[in-house]
């Protein structure tokens, strides 16, 4: 697909012989908001690291803007990363820098802009996330939701064409969640970027995502638009979307027979 900015082709990845992904194929078209969903531990965050080139796939490849990521040398990977912005789960703000300096950080590292231009840009980015007034604060003085928004401002500091979100809603109150939801959609459309969101929050994601991939057991279990998936008759998708306790994803981690274990003494 020529219109895709990120493509994952037949990707396998694993640690120490245990395969986390087994032949995953995904396409992320330009300008869209695409969500990757799945249970905890299904390797969603790992997918983001593979796209960012922090990990190398065991098999298959990831293409960003038509270039294979894992065969690049360090400079090549850094060149590709400058097209990406990433929002980490806990914000990952630099605790020794102020909010202002955090947002200015990528500009100072990668551009030769004058101090006054950086100032204007930083305040613009902070304004976009509604935190222009907080520019002098230190990261430790921010609430979780505010830290996430500052981190978002930092991620879009260099106007990336791909914005990746790692669990953007984890641990947020409903108001902050709604704010972040709104920001993801509006920033995506304003910047003309592509957003990749890794999450397990069904409710919020279904409201604004254009396309959704479900990952389970190392493969893409289901994909489609939110409406498609709501109608889906696949038992796994049904369990996930409606949050049922037991189903294809069992409540119990694989274990020997319960009665047997109790009688013999667990080993």
């Amino acid at each position: 697909m020529a219109n895709a900015i990120v493509e994952i082709k037949d990707l396998s990845f694993g640690y120490k012989g245990r395969l986390l992904h087994q032949g995953i194929n995904m396409t992320f078209p330009r300008g869209k908001v695409v969500a990757i969903m799945g249970g905890s531990g299904s390797g969603k965050t790992t997918l983001l690291r593979l796209i960012g080139g922090q990990l190398k796939p065991s098999k298959g490849s990831v293409l960003v803007d038509g270039e294979v990521v894992h065969t690049q040398n360090r400079d090549g990977i850094y060149r590709l990363r400058r097209k990406m912005g990433m929002l980490f789960q806990q914000g990952a703000l630099f605790t020794d820098l102020s909010v202002y300096e955090n947002v200015a950080f990528p500009m100072r590292e990668h551009t030769d802009l004058t101090e006054s231009m950086i100032r204007d840009l930083v305040l613009m980015k902070l304004n976009a996330v509604g935190l222009r007034g907080a520019h002098a604060l230190m990261p430790t003085e921010l609430s979780g939701g505010m830290a996430r928004r500052v981190s978002l401002a930092r991620a879009i500091a260099l106007d990336p064409s791909i914005i990746m979100y790692d669990e953007p809603f984890a641990g947020l109150d409903p108001i902050s969640m709604a704010v972040i939801c709104d920001l993801i959609r509006s920033l995506n459309d304003a910047l003309g970027a592509t957003s990749i969101i890794v999450t397990h929050d069904v409710e919020e994601t279904f409201q604004f995502a254009d396309y959704i991939y479900f990952v389970a057991n190392g493969v893409v279990a289901a994909e489609g638009t939110p409406d498609d998936l709501r109608q889906s008759s696949l038992p796994f998708v049904h369990q996930f979307v409606y949050g049922e306790k037991d189903g294809p994803v069992p409540f119990h981690y694989a274990a020997p027979d319960y009665q047997h274990s109790l009688l013999r003494g667990a080993r």
Binding site: Y78, M84, F88, F94, P106, H110
Partner: peptide, 8 residues
Amino acid sequence: SAMEMMAV
């Protein structure tokens, strides 16, 4: 990690 992802 964040720094690495910012190509720094």
